[in-house]
Amino acid sequence: MAGELPPPIEARGILTQFGPNIIHENLDFEVKRGEIVGLVGGSGTGKSVLMNTLLGLKAPEGGEVRYFGKRRADLSEREAGLLRNEIGVLFQGGALFSSMTVRQNVMVPLIEHFDIPHELMRELCDMKIHMVGLPPESAILYPSDLSGGMRKRAGLARSLALDPQILFLDEPTAGLDPIGAHAFDQLILNLREAMDLTVLMITHDLDSLYAICDRVAVLVDKKIGVYDSLDVVAQYDHPWVQEYFSGPRARATMATPGMQKKNADKAAAAVRA
């Protein structure tokens, strides 16, 4: 499967507008296979709208979205269905079905798309639940019994149910404590390696951007202003980008590469002392 394959996600000349209000204009964007891309931007710049456009939840007013080189609009009903199986989405709040247990939630896409014996399906779901780091006993709990972090993990397990190639994450670490957020970042890294994922994440968590993103896309002035590795993006000459990457929070994160490890060492030393 080597060679120049078309990128999994590609958007060309996207125009999004709500009434007279233009959100995106002539926006170009692509994600290469196996990348983890972070999408950042100020409030109201249309990060979630862009994600919805890519997912096909919202039709753009202009331009086209391509998956694996094929225009989304040209796909037949069947092809679109197959494509959907290749895409996993983690919504911000997890979007778990509240009337089902965690395991039943993970089972939903399997039941919907495959004819697999129930027993085997259960085992496969339990494997996914284990993969996202939830304890085995959480399989029969309901979403309302879970904490915010566990709910996100359960949502992730459901989005991974069909072994997708592309994973969309909407603010995966928002609302998690730093330790939980760090663990979640590591989880995404491990899963990418294990399942050969391409990941697009909307995030505001600078730690996440530093820790796991290969490239960072910044949404400014109705398009992707800069799209490169973090070092390059941080030097980009735009007021918002500068403010974002040189604000007090960013400086603290940037000044200490490998911060988490150091802190962990410090904590360990403190415990020993």
Binding site: R103, D126, I129, P136, I140
Partner: peptide, 11 residues
Amino acid sequence: VAASAQLGDPP
């Protein structure tokens, strides 16, 4: 990954 999977409680 598959080998380390733990199965959850039965329904």
